[in-house]
Every structure is written in structure tokens, then in C-alpha cells.
Design a binder for these strands. Structure first.
Lengths: 202, 202
DNA sequence: GTCTATATCGGGATAGAC
DNA sequence: GTCTATCCCGATATAGAC
């Protein structure tokens, strides 16, 4: 399986793994070379510099986590079902990649400019969500909330508990790994209920 | 004002500033020395190593942002007023220190063990909040929610929008700084309404 | 395309003068 | 207590053999 990858892909895969774990500043080319099972010089042969290798790796990770999240809202489900489906799938995705949220937050704060090209190319656009919220308000199914606040509320409730796990697991669960894993699993239902309860017209 | 600080405090203050901006790995002792207006060797004279200086700096920042947040819930206000007050004050604190949330998330993921001593010494304990939630449920003023989920929901809604600002500002506000500043200001009311709406028994 | 060897630089840390 | 000079290592990056 891994054997079938060519060298370039093997390097990129290793780079993603190491960068996500240690961040740009905490990562050395040597560690990536070790992870890929090849020599340090080859990294430069394929990607010229650490900076350029990082850009490829970051873009690769980013598109898996940001635009994909929004796809669900383009479907034709009932709005509340869409919210439930989105939250469930997104929390799953995050739990399977627990280091990614912290990594992305770290790197966008270190260098916000990395987003410039990536967002343009990846075509991240939440307007589909905003339009639908306005429609739901007009039809009277939800109360008059700001669609932008609602969007960021949902994102916050999904992402932050994963990004802050080392801290929250300790202060709320006495650092019990399993308890926090169960807690995150519960959140798929809990967060959806919370959001829907907050906006549903009764 | 800055003149009145002794050298040790001057160094610590400079270290906090640089570490928060660039993280542990992205910070060099030289940058801290420059920021403090003194020589590199003096850092080692006062703090022995980068690691030890970082620990002091991190603990210093941490206690300003985590335990202090919980103090509000020990007051004697009405529960909903407490929630409003907490969210308003906390978002203010975060907006005034916009790099801190990302910094803390970054460092706890890099090295979760730094929390070990700090949390013990700082005495971070949200149980006061949990108890009060249980009481409110018993008295029938709010619906039966999990107090732990509620706690982390509130934290998420306050912290994440600040920590993810470079990203969210771009995809939701076309990178308009002022619009995002206004948005964060609005959130003091918006988030409180959202939370209370989600839990209030009607 | 892949390796070893090496150039060059910047980092943390210490010695020692004042 | 504060400085300059220096040590030593690890980092990025390149040269050149195979």
C-alpha cells in the first residue's frame, strides 16, 4: 500500500504527519525524512525548501477539513436534519484527526497569509448556508438569528472541544482519556440538540 | 512605568509578549532579549534556560485567562445574569488579548504536561458551575442539559471565534478587520441569547 | 533519482571581564 | 548584575558522486 506511493507522495504524506504533530517551527526536515524513510536531500530535490513543502502539506490538510465541511449544506435535506448530519459527520472527522484543529489554528495565527491562495483555489464559500438560514427565518421555522453568528457558533461547538482537549480533559474529566472520548461521542447528539433548541421556533 | 520594573520582571514581560506572538518553537532567546532591551546572557542568568523561562511565562498567562474566568460563577447573581455577565466579560478579555487563545491551544497540544503543575497550583475548578446547573435543572428554570456539555459549549462559543479569527474573518467577512471587530462585539449579546434560549424552560 | 559529504547559519548556553 | 566573546550543536540547503 505505502509501497505503491511514489517518492513525492511518500514525502508529502510524511510531511503532513510530522507538521500536524509538531507545527512548522517545531518540525525539522530530518524528522520528515526519517518518517518518509528517505534521505534529507531528497526533500529539497522534490520541494526545494521547507517553506514550499509546508505550503503543499498545509493546503492538502486544509481542503480536507474546511470546504468539505460545507458540502453537507448543499444537500436537499430538511434544515434541522442537515444540522444534525453536519455536526455528526464533522465531529467524527475531527475526532479521527484530533491534532488537525490545533494545527490549523496555530498556523493561521503564525502566518495568516498562507490562507490567501488556498482559500481562493479551494473555493470556500459558506453563502449557501447563509441563504438557507434566511429562508428558514422567513418561513418561520426558526427564530430571527444572525446567520453568521449561527455559522460560527456551530463551528465553535464542533471544533473547540477537540482543539482544547488536553486542557478540557484535565480540568473537567481529571485527565480521563476514555471519559473524554465518550464525551466527544455524546456531543454529536448534544450539540445538535443544543443548537436546534436555541433557534427552533416553538 | 516600564523603567520601574526590575530586570527580572522586564525579561518576563518581554518573554510573555514574544512567546504569545510566536509560540515556544518560533521564539528565540535573542528576540526576547531584544524586546527586553538587554543582553541574551542575562536571560540565562535570571532563568537558566529557555524552557524554564517559558514555564514562568506560560503560567503567568494561563492564570489570567483560565481560573479568572470561573470566578464570576461564584457570585450571587441570578443564573441567567451570571451567564450574560460571564460571556460579556470573557469575550472582552479575549478581544483585548487576541493572540492568547491560539497561543494556549498551541502550547497545550505541543506539550500537554506543562498543564500538570500549573492547574494544581492555580486551582482551576469548574465544579461550582456544575453544581449550580444541577440546581437550576432541579428547580425547573432550565431544561435537563449535561452541565459538562454546557460548560464546554459556553467556552467554545467565547474562545473559538477569537482563536480562529484569521480564518473566519476571511471566509465569512472577506477579510474585513472592522467588520469582524463589530461581529465580536455583537457576540457578547448574541452568544448569551443563544445559550439561554437553548436551555431555558419555556 | 538517490545517496554522502559539506557549507553556512542561527540557536541555546556558558566563560570570564568589568 | 551586566556585558562581550565563544562554544557547540542542530538546522536548512547545496554539491557532487553514483
Amino acid at each position: 500500500m505505502k509501497r505503491s506511493l511514489n517518492t513525492e507522495d511518500k514525502i508529502l504524506k510524511a510531511a503532513i504527519q510530522v507538521f500536524v504533530k509538531s507545527g512548522f517551527e517545531g518540525t525539522s526536515m530530518q524528522k520528515i525524512a526519517d518518517e518518509a524513510g528517505i534521505n534529507k536531500a531528497l526533500l529539497h530535490y522534490y520541494f526545494r525548501s521547507k517553506e514550499k513543502l509546508f505550503e503543499k502539506a498545509f493546503a492538502n490538510i486544509f481542503v480536507k477539513f474546511v470546504p468539505r465541511a460545507l458540502e453537507i449544506f448543499t444537500s436537499e435535506l430538511d434544515f434541522f436534519d442537515k444540522i444534525r448530519l453536519f455536526i455528526g459527520t464533522y465531529i467524527d472527522l475531527l475526532v479521527q484527526n484530533p491534532l488537525v484543529p490545533g494545527f490549523i489554528l496555530q498556523e493561521i495565527n503564525r502566518n495568516p497569509d498562507i490562507l490567501y491562495n488556498i482559500i481562493r483555489e479551494a473555493g470556500v464559500d459558506p453563502s449557501f448556508f447563509f441563504i438557507q438560514v434566511e429562508k428558514e427565518i422567513a418561513s418561520g421555522s426558526i427564530v430571527a438569528v444572525s446567520s453568521k453568528h449561527l455559522f460560527i457558533n456551530i463551528m465553535s461547538l464542533c471544533i473547540f472541544p477537540v482543539a482544547s482537549r488536553p486542557l478540557m480533559q484535565r480540568i473537567v474529566f481529571n485527565n480521563d482519556e476514555r471519559a473524554y472520548a465518550i464525551f466527544l461521542e455524546e456531543r454529536k447528539k448534544e450539540v445538535a440538540d443544543f443548537v436546534i433548541n436555541a433557534i427552533k421556533r416553538k
